[in-house]
């Protein structure tokens, strides 16, 4: 029996109200951004739709990002909402190649929320920030009446400095680029799912939540990176489609090359989910100039967070905006953005 709030995988497009699918990272989210936020806020920094904006401040280029975390349950195998908030924002900065400088943390707490749990979340955030070497430099707290929030929500923002000569953005991927993936997919989504649904996979499946800025720094030192993205909501599938669309390139990938841990695959099979669209919190996909791809791959494998890095495919000139996957038995399928979400409220 599930008691999760139902997501809406059937986005009836002209909805008068917000449905959960609007937060899925799929087509409905894209539509919400396109139709509500972009026309209102319209500016070249935002219109790029990267995970972060890069601002020119004098001679420095400052990466700036923000992210809210509403995961249920707050604690799951391999992590918790606090760790997720710190890592998620560091990763959004790192995907521009930036070295993170500092984070902010804003808490929305529900009346009646356990002080003990809050303490555990905050301690976990502090530990994650210390380990990443990025201070939480400012913050805010609001308390709302019982029922107006689900325990606690966290919003983290971050700033970082983009090193000189580094230019990484989804729209810069180009035909010929090799696509590298830093490790197994779908660990985070399935860890949260199995915890929430009591599927009995606990222990076997852990969230991959991790801060990726040091891995990115190693990669930048090793070769020419064009585009980077961490496949969170919507999974690797959505990430590949977003980059293909943004850069106007085609993507061809091999299903067999994409690593998925055994228990994660088993859980996905059991629930009828496609790991390609399940969330990750400690992985990245990189579009790398072909000449330096093997050097970058080596650098990734030398870092503990990229030990299982693989090449999964390449960017091509044909079928711009379309992601083709060669299946295990030699057929092909088109990978498209999911409509809503496969899983309710992962992050």
């Amino acid at each position: 029996m599930t008691d999760f709030s139902l997501s809406c995988p059937l986005p009836i497009t002209r909805r008068k109200t917000i449905v959960l699918g609007h937060g899925s990272g799929g087509k409905l989210s894209a539509q919400l951004i396109r139709e509500v936020f972009l026309p209102a806020f319209d500016n070249p920094l935002l219109n790029r739709l990267d995970d972060q904006a890069v601002l020119q401040a004098g001679t420095a280029r400052v990466a700036f990002t923000t992210d809210s975390f509403v995961v249920t349950p707050l604690f799951f195998p391999g992590g918790d909402i606090g760790k997720l908030a710190v890592h998620g924002t560091i990763n959004d900065l790192a995907m521009s190649g930036a070295a993170p400088l500092a984070l902010s943390a804003a808490f929305i707490l529900e009346e009646g929320f356990s002080m003990e749990e809050l303490g555990r979340v905050v301690a976990s955030m502090a530990e994650a920030a210390r380990a990443a070497g990025v201070p939480i430099a400012t913050g805010d707290t609001k308390v709302v009446p019982r029922g107006a929030a689900d325990g606690m929500f966290v919003t983290t923002s971050g700033v970082g400095l983009v090193p000189e000569g580094v230019n990484i953005s989804a729209h810069l991927a180009r035909p010929g680029d090799k696509i590298l993936l830093s490790g197994t997919i779908a660990d985070h989504g399935m860890a949260v799912m199995s915890q929430r649904e009591g599927l009995g996979f606990e222990g076997a499946i852990e969230s991959d939540t991790a801060a990726l800025h040091r891995l990115v720094a190693d990669m930048i030192a090793a070769g020419e990176i064009h585009a980077l993205r961490d496949p969170t909501r919507g999974g690797l599938g959505a990430t590949l489609v977003e980059i293909a669309t943004s850069a106007g390139i085609g993507v061809e990938a091999e299903a067999m090359a994409i690593p998925v841990r055994e228990p994660v695959r088993a859980a996905c099979e059991l629930l009828g989910l496609d790991p390609l669209f399940v969330a990750n919190e400690g992985k990245l996909a990189a579009f790398v100039a072909p000449a330096s791809a093997s050097r970058v791959l080596e650098a990734m494998r030398a870092n503990p967070l990229g030990r299982e890095a693989v090449m999964i495919g390449e960017a091509v000139e044909s079928h711009p905006g379309m992601v083709l996957l060669r299946t295990e038995v030699g057929g092909t399928r088109v990978v498209d953005l999911p409509f809503g979400e496969q899983l309710p409220r992962i992050c």
Binding site: L324, V334, D336
Partner: peptide
Amino acid sequence: SAEGACAAYYNYGRRRGADSQSAAP
């Protein structure tokens, strides 16, 4: 439904005209 023939075609990219693109199925 994921098991519905139309959704299966749509989800896995069987669009009218998709065959005009070189590498498309």
